[in-house]
Design a protein around this nucleic acid. Structure first.
Lengths: 224, 224
DNA sequence: GCCACCGTAGTACCGGGGTACCACCGCCCC
DNA sequence: GGGGCGGTGGTACCCCGGTACTACGGTGGC
């Protein structure tokens, strides 16, 4: 019997998942969480085999909730679901330690299959995302030794950034162009581009605009 | 007995709706449509009392489907649902002749209430949207008392913008690309570019990144 | 009736942003 | 000493964003 916790801020979405899951003999829904904080609390209490995690939730989002659940070292696996098929979420989600990543418009059978796969220790990625993920990650693969080191405490989605990268992100958030950053920080523009590229990859931002928004949302940059 | 047609491209979402609706004695689900064209065809055939219409669907979207269904003069009412609480959808949807507009993260009770209200000829708008709709439309109303002109909301830097331009700036602030804006607001990309260009000129922003920052600074967009 | 403004749409063009890939150096730490 | 990582720098390439026009229907005001 596989136990599941549903974490989604939309009651109707939860209802749909619950109905689907409870129609299966081998699946049990242990509970429902409406935000990331609840998901963490209920996971610690109920120890589900799988957490069905929505990304966009009020307060603590699904990425950070995933990161913290995985960090406990518990057996619980996280299967991330989102309405968007944007790969930036996949990057961040998988980096946070999720065991899978599916899009919500998947066929019910896909979802059920995904849950069972994840529960048994495997990982699943929506076929639509697989190609892009491979392309993006193939160069980073040699470092994948599996010893997931716990990210430094403090910020949420910024934890993977180095000190320098956080500096760069700050000025990106102020609206500086690559040329301006290079000039004012006494760097070559190619260096700036390298930094920016890594920042986008690590934070799962599609472009510098998403990075600006991230800088504001994380209060790395304050409104003036 | 109230008959309902569900139009949504996501199977799981449809399942959630169907389960909820069929748990009610006075509601019957006549069928499910996965896109706008199907919704129109099935409505013409089945004459449901209410169409539960998702906005974002492949091919013919919910707005246009609503427009055509309403244009038939049939008794069928359209209740629009979306995952977004963005008012631009409300504008378009209500202009297209929808009888209601709810967000998907509504409580099930809200949805049921909305369906019954719409079926009985009333109209419903999610409370969260009502204020903004009023704010946006009050200036289009015949200025009854002739007193205070409604001042443009927020910062002085936004005062030169038209209503539409403020809408566009809002979604720019959310990080949407021109392509996404065009798709989600049902515009040509060239139109979006025209709008964006005028916004940048009027606000004195050198690029959309400055515009994003402006949107945050003026609280046109709030950090999430 | 005319004009200004708004929203829509198009074409053509250029430059910066982002990606892919590679390389070197100076740390620090097994 | 070897290896990983962070910071720096380079080249080549493509695409989106932004600019500069033009255009046309609708609406409201004078």
């Amino acid at each position: 019997m596989t136990t599941v916790l549903i974490a989604d801020d939309q009651p109707l979405q939860r209802l749909g998942f619950r109905m689907l899951l409870e129609s299966q003999d081998d699946l049990t829904v242990l509970g429902e969480a409406a935000n990331g904080a609840e998901a963490i609390r209920m996971t610690a209490e109920l120890h589900p085999d799988v957490v069905l995690m929505d990304i966009r939730m009020p307060g603590l989002d699904g990425i950070e909730a995933t990161r913290r659940i995985v960090a406990t070292g518990d057996r619980t696996r996280v299967l991330i679901l989102t309405t968007f098929d944007l790969d930036e979420y996949a990057y961040a989600g998988l980096r946070a330690g999720a065991s899978g990543f599916l899009v919500k418009d998947a066929q019910p059978e896909e979802l059920l299959l995904g849950i069972r796969s994840v529960a048994s220790g495997d990982a699943v990625v929506a076929p639509r995302l697989t190609r892009r993920l491979l392309d993006a990650y193939v160069q980073h693969l040699p470092t994948g030794d599996g010893t997931a080191e716990v990210p430094p405490p403090g910020d949420a989605r910024l934890s993977a950034l180095t000190e320098r990268e956080r500096e760069i992100l700050t000025v990106i958030g102020k609206g500086w162009t690559n040329t301006e950053i290079a000039a004012r920080l006494h760097l070559a523009e190619s260096t700036v581009k390298t930094h920016v590229g890594r920042i986008l990859a690590k934070t799962g931002s599609r472009d510098r605009i998403q990075a600006v928004i991230l800088a504001y949302d994380t209060k790395l940059v304050e409104p003036s």
